[in-house]
Simulated assay, not measured.
Amino acid sequence: MPVGVVMRRRPGVTRWARWDWRAVAVLPGARPADWQELRREGEVVEYHAATPILELHGAETEAYVHGLGADVPGVFVILRKGSGDRPLNVVRVTASPYEAQDYGDNGEDIVEKVPMPPGLAAWVQSFVEAYHQDQAFVKRRRDKARVDRVEDGKGDARIPQAADVYRSPAAARRRRLS
Protein backbone atom coordinates (compact mmCIF):
# COMPACT_ATOMS: atom_id res chain seq x y z
CA MET A 1 0.00 0.00 0.00
CA PRO A 2 1.40 3.45 -0.81
CA VAL A 3 1.76 5.52 2.36
CA GLY A 4 2.50 9.24 2.30
CA VAL A 5 4.85 10.56 4.96
CA VAL A 6 4.10 13.98 6.48
CA MET A 7 7.16 15.82 7.79
CA ARG A 8 6.91 18.88 10.06
CA ARG A 9 9.56 21.61 10.14
CA ARG A 10 9.66 23.81 13.25
CA PRO A 11 12.22 26.37 14.36
CA GLY A 12 15.03 24.79 16.35
CA VAL A 13 15.35 25.37 20.07
CA THR A 14 19.14 25.77 20.11
CA ARG A 15 21.49 27.91 18.09
CA TRP A 16 23.14 24.79 16.66
CA ALA A 17 19.94 23.41 15.11
CA ARG A 18 18.15 25.94 12.94
CA TRP A 19 15.21 23.60 12.18
CA ASP A 20 13.61 20.64 13.94
CA TRP A 21 12.30 18.01 11.51
CA ARG A 22 9.83 15.30 12.61
CA ALA A 23 7.69 12.70 10.87
CA VAL A 24 4.24 13.43 12.30
CA ALA A 25 1.70 11.46 10.24
CA VAL A 26 1.16 8.99 7.44
CA LEU A 27 -1.43 9.14 4.67
CA PRO A 28 -2.60 5.65 3.60
CA GLY A 29 -3.24 5.35 -0.14
CA ALA A 30 -1.55 8.68 -0.96
CA ARG A 31 -0.38 9.65 -4.41
CA PRO A 32 3.34 10.13 -5.13
CA ALA A 33 4.75 13.40 -3.80
CA ASP A 34 8.10 15.10 -3.55
CA TRP A 35 8.19 17.53 -0.60
CA GLN A 36 4.85 19.09 -1.44
CA GLU A 37 3.81 21.75 1.08
CA LEU A 38 0.57 20.82 2.86
CA ARG A 39 0.12 23.44 5.59
CA ARG A 40 1.87 26.52 6.94
CA GLU A 41 1.27 28.18 10.31
CA GLY A 42 3.83 30.91 10.93
CA GLU A 43 7.24 29.25 10.82
CA VAL A 44 5.84 25.72 11.18
CA VAL A 45 5.45 23.97 7.84
CA GLU A 46 4.18 20.46 7.05
CA TYR A 47 5.27 18.68 3.88
CA HIS A 48 4.14 15.54 2.11
CA ALA A 49 7.74 14.37 1.78
CA ALA A 50 7.43 11.05 -0.05
CA THR A 51 5.14 8.10 -0.69
CA PRO A 52 6.96 4.80 -0.11
CA ILE A 53 5.21 1.44 -0.35
CA LEU A 54 4.27 -0.27 2.93
CA GLU A 55 4.77 -4.01 2.40
CA LEU A 56 3.55 -6.71 4.75
CA HIS A 57 5.19 -10.15 4.82
CA GLY A 58 3.68 -13.37 6.12
CA ALA A 59 6.88 -14.27 7.98
CA GLU A 60 6.67 -11.10 10.11
CA THR A 61 3.14 -11.41 11.44
CA GLU A 62 4.40 -11.89 15.00
CA ALA A 63 5.99 -8.43 14.80
CA TYR A 64 2.74 -6.94 13.48
CA VAL A 65 0.81 -8.51 16.37
CA HIS A 66 3.33 -6.95 18.77
CA GLY A 67 2.98 -3.55 17.09
CA LEU A 68 -0.82 -3.64 17.03
CA GLY A 69 -0.87 -4.57 20.72
CA ALA A 70 0.94 -1.37 21.75
CA ASP A 71 -0.92 1.38 23.64
CA VAL A 72 -0.73 3.47 20.47
CA PRO A 73 -0.22 1.26 17.37
CA GLY A 74 2.35 2.87 15.13
CA VAL A 75 4.01 2.90 11.76
CA PHE A 76 7.76 3.42 11.71
CA VAL A 77 9.30 5.88 9.27
CA ILE A 78 12.96 5.26 8.44
CA LEU A 79 14.84 8.46 7.53
CA ARG A 80 18.38 9.21 6.37
CA LYS A 81 20.19 12.51 6.31
CA GLY A 82 19.81 14.35 3.03
CA SER A 83 21.25 17.59 1.72
CA GLY A 84 20.15 21.07 0.73
CA ASP A 85 16.44 21.85 0.93
CA ARG A 86 15.72 18.16 1.64
CA PRO A 87 17.46 17.52 4.94
CA LEU A 88 15.98 14.03 5.33
CA ASN A 89 15.25 11.28 2.83
CA VAL A 90 12.45 8.83 3.50
CA VAL A 91 14.00 5.37 3.10
CA ARG A 92 11.18 3.09 4.18
CA VAL A 93 7.93 2.76 6.07
CA THR A 94 7.26 -0.39 8.10
CA ALA A 95 4.61 -1.70 10.48
CA SER A 96 7.13 -4.07 12.12
CA PRO A 97 8.70 -2.83 15.36
CA TYR A 98 11.37 -5.53 14.98
CA GLU A 99 12.47 -4.22 11.57
CA ALA A 100 12.40 -0.64 12.91
CA GLN A 101 14.72 -1.69 15.74
CA ASP A 102 17.15 -3.18 13.21
CA TYR A 103 17.26 0.14 11.35
CA GLY A 104 17.70 2.02 14.61
CA ASP A 105 20.62 -0.18 15.63
CA ASN A 106 22.73 0.60 12.55
CA GLY A 107 23.50 4.13 13.74
CA GLU A 108 23.01 5.77 10.34
CA ASP A 109 19.22 5.96 10.16
CA ILE A 110 16.63 7.91 12.11
CA VAL A 111 13.53 5.93 13.14
CA GLU A 112 10.35 7.86 13.93
CA LYS A 113 7.20 6.22 15.29
CA VAL A 114 4.04 7.75 13.87
CA PRO A 115 0.52 6.88 15.10
CA MET A 116 -1.17 4.35 12.80
CA PRO A 117 -4.46 5.65 11.34
CA PRO A 118 -7.47 3.42 12.14
CA GLY A 119 -7.97 2.40 8.49
CA LEU A 120 -4.34 1.31 8.18
CA ALA A 121 -4.56 -0.54 11.51
CA ALA A 122 -7.61 -2.43 10.21
CA TRP A 123 -5.71 -3.34 7.03
CA VAL A 124 -2.73 -4.68 9.01
CA GLN A 125 -5.07 -6.52 11.40
CA SER A 126 -6.86 -8.25 8.50
CA PHE A 127 -3.47 -9.31 7.11
CA VAL A 128 -2.49 -10.75 10.51
CA GLU A 129 -5.80 -12.62 10.81
CA ALA A 130 -5.29 -14.14 7.36
CA TYR A 131 -1.64 -15.20 7.70
CA HIS A 132 -0.58 -15.39 11.36
CA GLN A 133 0.11 -18.82 12.85
CA ASP A 134 1.07 -19.04 16.50
CA GLN A 135 4.39 -20.80 17.00
CA ALA A 136 4.57 -22.92 20.12
CA PHE A 137 7.75 -22.39 22.12
CA VAL A 138 9.85 -25.54 22.15
CA LYS A 139 12.66 -25.66 24.66
CA ARG A 140 15.84 -27.15 23.28
CA ARG A 141 16.89 -30.33 25.03
CA ARG A 142 20.48 -31.13 25.82
CA ASP A 143 22.33 -33.93 24.15
CA LYS A 144 22.81 -37.11 26.21
CA ALA A 145 26.54 -37.26 25.46
CA ARG A 146 28.79 -37.11 28.54
CA VAL A 147 31.28 -34.33 27.91
CA ASP A 148 32.57 -34.14 31.47
CA ARG A 149 34.77 -37.25 31.15
CA VAL A 150 37.40 -35.80 28.79
CA GLU A 151 39.60 -32.84 29.68
CA ASP A 152 41.29 -32.29 26.31
CA GLY A 153 42.46 -28.75 25.83
CA LYS A 154 41.79 -27.80 29.43
CA GLY A 155 44.39 -25.79 31.31
CA ASP A 156 47.94 -24.94 30.30
CA ALA A 157 49.81 -27.52 28.20
CA ARG A 158 53.13 -26.57 29.86
CA ILE A 159 51.93 -28.09 33.15
CA PRO A 160 52.30 -31.89 32.93
CA GLN A 161 50.14 -32.73 35.96
CA ALA A 162 46.42 -33.22 35.53
CA ALA A 163 45.81 -32.40 39.22
CA ASP A 164 46.18 -28.61 39.00
CA VAL A 165 45.53 -27.61 35.40
CA TYR A 166 44.80 -23.98 36.31
CA ARG A 167 48.14 -23.36 38.00
CA SER A 168 50.39 -20.83 36.25
CA PRO A 169 53.59 -22.09 34.56
CA ALA A 170 55.72 -19.86 36.86
CA ALA A 171 54.30 -21.59 39.94
CA ALA A 172 55.05 -24.99 38.40
CA ARG A 173 58.65 -24.01 37.76
CA ARG A 174 59.13 -22.76 41.31
CA ARG A 175 57.88 -26.11 42.67
CA ARG A 176 60.27 -28.06 40.47
CA LEU A 177 63.24 -25.93 41.57
CA SER A 178 62.55 -26.34 45.28
Rank of each mutant, 00 (worst) to 15 (best):
Y103G: 00
Y64K: 00
L88P: 06
W123Q: 10
Y131N: 15
G84W: 09
V65K: 13
A30D: 09
R146W: 10
V124L: 01
K154E: 14
R176K: 12
A157L: 06
A171I: 04
A163V: 09
V114G: 00
R158D: 00
Y98G: 02
G153A: 09
Y98S: 05
R158M: 02
P28R: 04
W35V: 08
G12H: 04
V150S: 05
I110M: 08
V72F: 08
V75R: 02
W19N: 05
H66I: 04
Y98L: 03
S83V: 08
H132A: 11
D134C: 07
V65Q: 14
R173W: 09
K113I: 02
A23N: 09
R167D: 11
L79P: 04
A136K: 15
A122P: 05
D152N: 12
E37P: 09
Q101C: 06
Y166G: 14
R40A: 03
A145V: 05
A122D: 15
S178P: 06
P73H: 04
A63S: 15
P11R: 13
P32K: 06
L177R: 15
Q36L: 13
V72G: 08
T14H: 10
K144H: 15
E37G: 02
N89D: 14
Y64E: 03
K144G: 14
D105S: 12
P52R: 05
L79A: 02
L54F: 05
E112H: 07
A162H: 13
R10T: 00
W21G: 10
G82C: 09
L56N: 09
V5C: 02
R31Y: 11
E129N: 15
D20M: 01
V138W: 04
N106G: 05
R141V: 11
N89A: 14
R174E: 10
Q133D: 10
D85F: 09
G74D: 11
L79C: 01
R15Y: 03
T14G: 09
R9E: 07
Q161K: 10
E55H: 14
T61G: 08
Y98H: 04
A172N: 15
V65D: 12
E60M: 11
R8G: 01
R173L: 14
L27P: 02
A49Q: 06
E60T: 14
A33P: 06
Y166C: 14
T51N: 02
A171E: 15
D134P: 13
P169A: 11
G84V: 10
G107M: 05
Q125T: 15
I110F: 07
P2K: 10
E43W: 04
P73E: 07
A59Q: 04
R40W: 02
Q125A: 15
T51E: 00
E41A: 08
R92W: 12
E60D: 15
E99I: 00
G155T: 00
F76K: 00
R140S: 15
G82L: 06
K113M: 11
